[in-house]
Write a protein that binds this DNA or RNA. Sequence first.
DNA 1: CGTTGCATGTAAGGTGTTACATGATTAC
DNA 2: GTAATCATGTAACACCTTACATGCAACG
Lengths: 184, 184
Amino acid sequence: MLRPLPATAWAVLGILSFDRELSGYQVKRWADASLTFFYWSPAISQVYGELKRLEELGFVEGRDVAEEQRTTRVYRITESGRTALTRWLEDAPVEPPVLKHSVLLRLWLGHLSTPDRLRQVAQRHREQTEEVLADLTSSERKAEQEPDWEFPAMVLRWGERYYRNELALTDELLRELDGFEDRG
Amino acid sequence: MLRPLPATAWAVLGILSFDRELSGYQVKRWADASLTFFYWSPAISQVYGELKRLEELGFVEGRDVAEEQRTTRVYRITESGRTALTRWLEDAPVEPPVLKHSVLLRLWLGHLSTPDRLRQVAQRHREQTEEVLADLTSSERKAEQEPDWEFPAMVLRWGERYYRNELALTDELLRELDGFEDRG
DNA sequence: CGTTGCATGTAAGGTGTTACATGATTAC
DNA sequence: GTAATCATGTAACACCTTACATGCAACG
């Protein structure tokens, strides 16, 4: 335990910090519905792996729940896990956000293509951003209904502003591309 | 070559597409000065690895340049590399940008801490963003001087707007945190 | 004379994905 | 009945970083 845990482990533990007993599968769905907007949603296989590690560290407790034909393993955060998570939140160095924007990577190489093709790429990105925004606002409506979800709601509002800005920036790029002569 | 190359390989090849013969070390410095704002800058060891792979694929050509006491290996993009890169740019599916914002991850878990501590995290993030903006504007000045760098310049302008918005969003978060009662 | 920059790489190991394997349940 | 969802995991492998090893050059 000398090595610090990756942020993904804290993210999984964080999902459990909202005081629900969840299966690995449910953790993944929560990640898809919230984390994905500002962090990213780990693969389901990684979720199982992180839960295993967190259990070995004593940060979560697993319990097999018998259903009719099968058993589901559900996890709950421990006091020790809550303490460790709080410590990470408050004390870990603030790493700058990681952005891997392959659309911009492509526009950066615009000299290899034509403004028309580049506009198609930007336009496709714009559509995908609209879709993310739609998912976000639907998540927001759910979060507003729950009590004690002030912070997730605050982060979702942040996300809405972030993705609206992404749309605006893309529109600005589309306008700039209009100004480039088609040399293809 | 059935498996598509990772975006990082295209990024390295892209740096070489500006028609300069560069050493691995120089590629890394270019990445730090431009890519890093909208994609991310790979570790120097990975740059060497990618250059090796690109050479095996025939997308770049390496050449040993003898200097006084040592030789430096410099790379140049090939016609085949330029074609492949253009094809990637135009034809590869538009993957959504990946954002891993650990600051937001922490605010999302605000119920574990106090508004005061959270403000410190947000404030630290704000300072780091200011630093990125300073680097960005200095890169912008350089890009404006070079001819045929319209697209890198366009992307840098995008970056300036992006990071200015990041500041604005952080300020908004700081304001919202002021509204939360200190329950710590 | 020690630190920083230039310069190149290998090795080890962690992070994370896709593919695979398995099986129950639910909806069309 | 068959497709999607619920549910759990393993194995293989790609991606990427840190640490290590090496050595020259320039600056103070």
